[in-house]
Amino acid sequence: MIKRSILFGAVAAALLLGAPARAAEGGHDDLPHRESWSFAGPFGSFDQGQLQRGFKVFREVCASCHSANFFYFRNLSQPGGPGFSEAQAKAVASEYQITDGPNDQGEMFQRPGRLSDQWPAPFPNDQAARVANGGALPPDFSVLAKARASHVGFPGFILDAFTQYQEGGVDYIHALLTGYVDPPEGTKVQPGLHYNKYFPGHQIAMPKPISDGQVEYTDGTPATLDNYSRDVSAFMMWMAEPHLDARKRIGFQVMIFLFVFAGLLYFTKKKVWKDVAH
C-alpha cells in the first residue's frame, strides 16, 4: 500500500514540478557538451599522459596569468597524479625562483624552488593581477574545476546521481576554451571583452588563451586546441581533486564490503525473526 502511494506521490511530483522546469529552461543550445573523461564513472582514474600534457599547457600558457595557490611542486610526484618521479618534480621546482626570507640581514631573497614550495603565483596580489589584466581577476586554478558547473534542471539532476556525473566543471572549462567564436550578427561586444559561446552572458574578459600548435607535445598527441583544452581540463580536475583515484578505488572496496555485510545481516535477521509472526 505504501509502495503504491509512493509511486503516486512521485508521479504527482514529477507532473507538478516538471512543467515549470521545462518552461524555465527554454533553449539551451549553449550548454557545454558532456565529454567522456578517463576519470569519470565508478572505475575512473586519471590518465598520467594526459595530466603530464595538461601540466605542460598549464605551465606554458595558463600559469602566466592564473595562480594555483593550493598546488605544490611535491604534488607532481604524489601517487594518483601525473606520475613524475621525485627527481623530475625536483627538476621542475628548481626551474622556478621562489621568494624566501627574511635572511640574517632582514631581507627577502630569491632561491630555486624546492618540493615543499607552493606553485609561484604570477602576480604578487589580486590588485596587481587586476591591473595587468584590464581590471579582471584571473581566478585561482587550485579548485576551479569543482567551482564551475553547468546548469542542470529537473529531472536531469536526479539522473546525474545515478550516472555519477561529477564532471560539470571540466566540461564547462573544456567548452569555454573551445568556445571562442565570432559573435552572432548584431551582438555588440564591449571593449576589453571577448565573445565566448559558453561563458554566462557570452562576454568574457579573458582573450582566447590558446590556439592550435602553441604548445609542443612530445608524445605524438596532435597539438590541437581541442587536445590542449581537454588535457588542461583534466589537469585542473586533478588539481582540484588530487585523491580522486584513491577515492574511487577505496569506494569500490567499501561498497563490496557493505554489500556482503548487508547480505549476511539480512539472513541473520531472517533467522532471528523466523519464529515470530510480524
Binding site: V260, F261, L264, F267, T268
Partner: peptide, 9 residues
Amino acid sequence: LYIATGAVG
C-alpha cells in the same frame, strides 16, 4: 551465520 556476520562486522 552468526559467527560470519559478527566477524565481517
